[in-house]
Computed example of a mutant assay.
Amino acid sequence: MGKSKGARITITLECECPNLSNPEKRSNGVFRYTSSKNRRNTPSRIELKKFCRQCNCHTIFKEIK
């Protein structure tokens, strides 16, 4: 028998760079991190400040569905 799916889930964090349309910076695209969170403790979406390779600086990454 399989275990029940616990409170922990895997989430995807996506960068909200304002510089994605700027061709002078690195290549265009979307940069993402994966992480996990406890569904019971944090039911709302997470926002973390992480390093983005696209804009070469620390920006806010928001949880996407």
Rank of each mutant, 00 (worst) to 15 (best):
N38P: 03
R45P: 02
P43H: 07
K62E: 12
I9N: 12
E24Q: 09
E63D: 12
G2E: 12
N41W: 07
K3N: 09
E63G: 07
C57Y: 00
G29Q: 06
R40D: 07
P23N: 04
E63L: 12
I46M: 14
G6M: 10
T59S: 05
K37Y: 08
K25I: 06
E14C: 02
T34R: 10
S36R: 07
S21I: 00
G2L: 11
T42V: 11
T12H: 12
F51S: 01
P23F: 04
I11P: 07
S44F: 11
T59I: 15
G29M: 02
L48G: 01
I60L: 08
Y33M: 06
S35V: 00
R39P: 00
N56K: 06
N41A: 05
E47T: 15
N41M: 11
C17E: 13
C17R: 02
E24C: 04
K50C: 06
K50P: 01
A7S: 11
G2C: 01
E63H: 10
R45D: 09
E16P: 06
G6A: 07
S44C: 02
K65C: 03
N41L: 14
P18T: 05
I60P: 00
H58I: 14
N28W: 02
I9H: 12
C52A: 13
K25C: 08
V30P: 00
E47S: 14
T34M: 12
Y33H: 09
H58L: 05
K65H: 09
H58N: 13
